[in-house]
Design a protein around this nucleic acid. Sequence first.
DNA 1: TCTGGCACTCGAACACGCAGAGTGCCAACG
DNA 2: CGTTGGCACTCTGCGTGTTCGAGTGCCAGA
Lengths: 338, 338
Amino acid sequence: MLSERRLEVLRAIVQDYVGTEEPVGSKALTERHRLGVSPATVRNDMAVLEEEGYIAQPHTSAGRIPTDKGYRLFVDKLAGVKPLSTPERRAIQNFLDGAVDLDDVVGRTVRLLAQLTRQVAVVQYPSLTRSTVRHVELLSLAPARLMLVLITDTGRVEQRLVDCPSPFGEASLADLRARLNSRVVGRRFTDVPPLVQDLPESFEADDRGTVSTVLSTLLETLVEEAEERLMIGGTANLTRFGHDFPLTIRPVLEALEEQVVLLKLLGEANESGMAVRIGHENAYEGLNSTSVVSVGYGSGGETVAKLGVVGPTRMDYPGTMGAVRAVARYVGQILAES
Amino acid sequence: MLSERRLEVLRAIVQDYVGTEEPVGSKALTERHRLGVSPATVRNDMAVLEEEGYIAQPHTSAGRIPTDKGYRLFVDKLAGVKPLSTPERRAIQNFLDGAVDLDDVVGRTVRLLAQLTRQVAVVQYPSLTRSTVRHVELLSLAPARLMLVLITDTGRVEQRLVDCPSPFGEASLADLRARLNSRVVGRRFTDVPPLVQDLPESFEADDRGTVSTVLSTLLETLVEEAEERLMIGGTANLTRFGHDFPLTIRPVLEALEEQVVLLKLLGEANESGMAVRIGHENAYEGLNSTSVVSVGYGSGGETVAKLGVVGPTRMDYPGTMGAVRAVARYVGQILAES
DNA sequence: TCTGGCACTCGAACACGCAGAGTGCCAACG
DNA sequence: CGTTGGCACTCTGCGTGTTCGAGTGCCAGA
């Protein structure tokens, strides 16, 4: 176990490096932090920290920079979550309150998060899997063509065209609509399949084919939506990375276009709290030099989706975590209200 | 007017520069193109071209690179649109045919375009302004709360919550739904307002407030959708820009996040054909070192939206224009089928 | 009008030297 | 034993000077 002072030295290194983006040496450390010891002592401590793998030197005779392991220790033991200032909180709330629909909520959230953290923001649309059905609507577009519209309690709407095997009368349509709704409204998506399985049987032989088709389209929609949507913003912040440009930024941009990768990444967020994945802790190779801070959000204690930011491992963790948490909280509130 | 050979020299310069990304000199030109004259002659021609503003030297004693004006001439007079190969066409069609809904069509289109041109692709969702109404649905969520769902002929669905000033019975609801649909189905969005203006009058006094609210929400939806949605892809291709990185890429990323800017940009696409905006021809400053190739697409001769790519001014214009045009054509077909 | 030749210019690449920052180690001190 | 000051060493970064080569402009001649 590292002594108290050595931890303090590590904290100082992380803070300075995050601020200056330059390797930090022993002398500068003692000047900028009240460690109460001389540079020589700090040097000894640094040697130990390096041996343990918490810090490293880019080249001989340069200052030290934290390793992924060092950041990990910093996040776990040395840093709190920095709460936002009251004006910041107020600004968040005002900004989010202006949203008119779900797209707008997500859009505003992503811009807000990007601006607040000055990093790339990723927001997942509220998940359908956890949602409940608010309404199912069936519309007749042509004699043998229906449109199925599904409305969720998070305000999301999905529509599908259905080609019927045989013409379907208005009366049957109204009947199906009524029965379908009475069975599934208020139910969770995952609970729906068994509830509608026997529906075709109660219809006339002529209509059974169509009813089955409608049902399978409905179930398909639920499943397909497990592949969920994302919104991304703040990519211009990537240019702040600094030195070794194209090499760093390219794989990140590529990763951001791979929705699957991002969803997996967000998915790793711990159910309860916030997840911080640092550098190589990210399974996806392109993000090995970035950290991902993610958290779930939702209304009424239930997590309906995740959001987070992607930035350089050299980021202001307390501030970022504070911003991410605060935004998630307010989005949850907004969703609960609508 | 420039002589035939000088135009030929300009074409050669553009082609070589696009290929090599390096300033091209007189000697290299004569080696790589059968111009039939000596380097010295080419030098004289280059001096003229430079005087006229078609090419420039980065520094004295470097080769020449085309200016925006040079590219303009190249695009207008010297280059055709390079048609895609048959396998390419087939690949496009196969790829787009797999789409299941509108989101998917747009998503696939953007990926396709980015991959084909190796540049940033921008695709606008089919516009509502030009669309017609396929169906309006009203659902009762609570005694004084409705949901308005609007379905367009391009398969797009928009929903809005409506808080009623007074409770609204099922009978009135059905009545309103029927009358509304009989008036607006098949109509263009822009034609709708006058058609529904007198609707409230035909309802009971108690319900007029609600009917007005519903109508204004509907009209609002139409207007709001003038602010249309976009999908963007292929941003990782920006890293191919090369040398002077952060300076070039940053404003482009910023522009890409400003949907308003992009919409305006696409909007400039000529009704009939393709638009190519080169460098400083772009009104938006951040895109001064890029070119935008855009074109409208739609089903049945009608343009419902635009799509295009953003890339360095040093791009393969014939190839890019060919790809953009081909993709637009196939997307139009797909939309017409669904 | 085109061509070959020639002097000139300028940027890229490389070597050199210097200053500054930072380290590791050691001996001395409390 | 932990801490401290001192010292020699090792790098990187930067500015300078030099060379090399590509490319130009101009001119005289075909």
